[in-house]
């Protein structure tokens, strides 16, 4: 069974438009095991109940922002090994260097297309 089919992904974004754009890209890549939620807190609960391989999260969200979600995941032994991709509106070095310190695996800037999303994912999980 290919990596595409077994990879489970959690998409976290408060805006349904950008969530849908990410989901559409993932579906076009051929990833089927996708869950999503609107905020970091829900993501943590969902992941605790059902672990995933990769989290793709927006940076700018009410409640926990993307990096706070990453931090919370890394601090919990059960979820510390989950891959984390940050989606952000612009390339902000400050956010990225903080992210890197927290163990960010990759990032992608909006707007992106499906090949860009695929490249971004492959850099983390290997060829899809």
């Amino acid at each position: 069974m290919s990596l595409k089919n077994s990879l489970s992904v959690m998409v976290v974004d408060d805006m349904s438009t950008s969530r849908s754009l990410i989901l559409m890209a993932l579906e076009q890549i051929g990833i089927t095991n996708i869950d999503f939620c609107k905020d970091g807190q829900t993501a943590l609960q969902k992941i605790a109940a059902k672990p995933v391989h990769i989290v793709i999260s927006d940076y700018n969200m009410p409640g926990l922002n993307g990096l706070q979600l990453l931090k919370a995941l890394r601090e919990n032994k059960q979820t510390s090994r989950i891959g984390f991709i940050l989606v952000s509106g612009k390339l902000d070095k400050e956010i990225l260097s903080t992210g890197k310190k927290l163990g960010l695996n990759n990032f992608i800037t909006k707007p992106f297309d499906t090949p860009q999303m695929k490249n971004c994912l492959q850099a983390v999980v290997g060829p899809l």
Binding site: L3, P51, I54, K100, L104, N105, A123, V124, V125, G126
Partner: peptide
Amino acid sequence: DLSFPPLAIPLGPEDL
């Protein structure tokens, strides 16, 4: 320093 190390995805059931 903005590059990221690839992640080895554990796919075994024990990991999940």
